[in-house]
Amino acid sequence: MLGLKKKDRLVEQILASRRVVFRCFCRYALILPVAVFIVVFLVIPYANMVVTSLRPFLSAGRIGHGLTLANYQKALADPYYLKVLGTTVLCGLITTATCLLLGYPIAHHLAQRETKHKGILYAIVLSPLLVGAVVRCYGWMLLLADNGLINSFLQYIGLGKAKLMYNFFGVLVGLVHIYLPFMVLSLIGPIQSVDPTWRSAARTLGASGKRVFWRITFPLSIPGIISGSVLVFLLTVSSYIGPILLGGYSVMVTPMLIVQTILSGVNYPLGAALSFVLVGCIAIAVILIFRATDKLLKGVDIYEA
């Protein structure tokens, strides 16, 4: 009755392809402005920075032509710069470990379904993130300074002064405080997804609460631990405000060095090279951690970060 002729089939194909074309157009048209924006303001500046890092430095504000590896040589061979990098990485590791220690109980607490007033607790954990690094560090300065609240209290009860700021301790306190929420947020998901029926099963098999935790909950939350640690390490090592406010110049980390090189020395090539050395360090650390944990974890799915 309604036979399909060859012409009809062609018409079909044309109309069908029109819809496909429209879909393709939508996909590209919508995403184009954003893609262009990111390329222009992120990709190109970074690419340009790579080139800059390879240019010779002539004097403050003047950059020569041609390519050279001198900047990288300086960044990687100069003992002072290496020491700063070492301090940075050490800061990162200690901060990450501390955040893990402090963050896990909080994340565990928030992951339990029985916990009451979750809204308020979440607000407590998250609101510092939105207050801004400056204000948070300011609060610590007021607490930790030589004539700050803590020392004032110590003096009041007759224990004398303690140097809590402008040193490694102060910087660590600030960094841990700033990045703890990130660790908590990274851990909650994985801990929550540990099926409570597994725990019940373990208990019916005679395991005590403590054993259940160490044998079941903890191992299964390791992927969260890893992704949280990587995140915190990455952020800490890139941190500028915390170290400079709470450490002054007595604790020098690479971001501070970079800013100094750029602003005071106006040495763009070296600053750029140092930046990439830092980025490179982060990349290496992240790769190493994931490699190492791949070997450790067998039989546990790694959640995609």
Binding site: L2, D8, E12, R19
Partner: peptide, 17 residues
């Protein structure tokens, strides 16, 4: 959905596409 092949008619009207 757009069919790959075939026709749909409502009464006399071809409404496939």
């Amino acid at each position: 959905e757009l069919p790959d092949q075939g026709r749909i008619f409502f009464g006399e009207e071809d409404v496939t596409f």
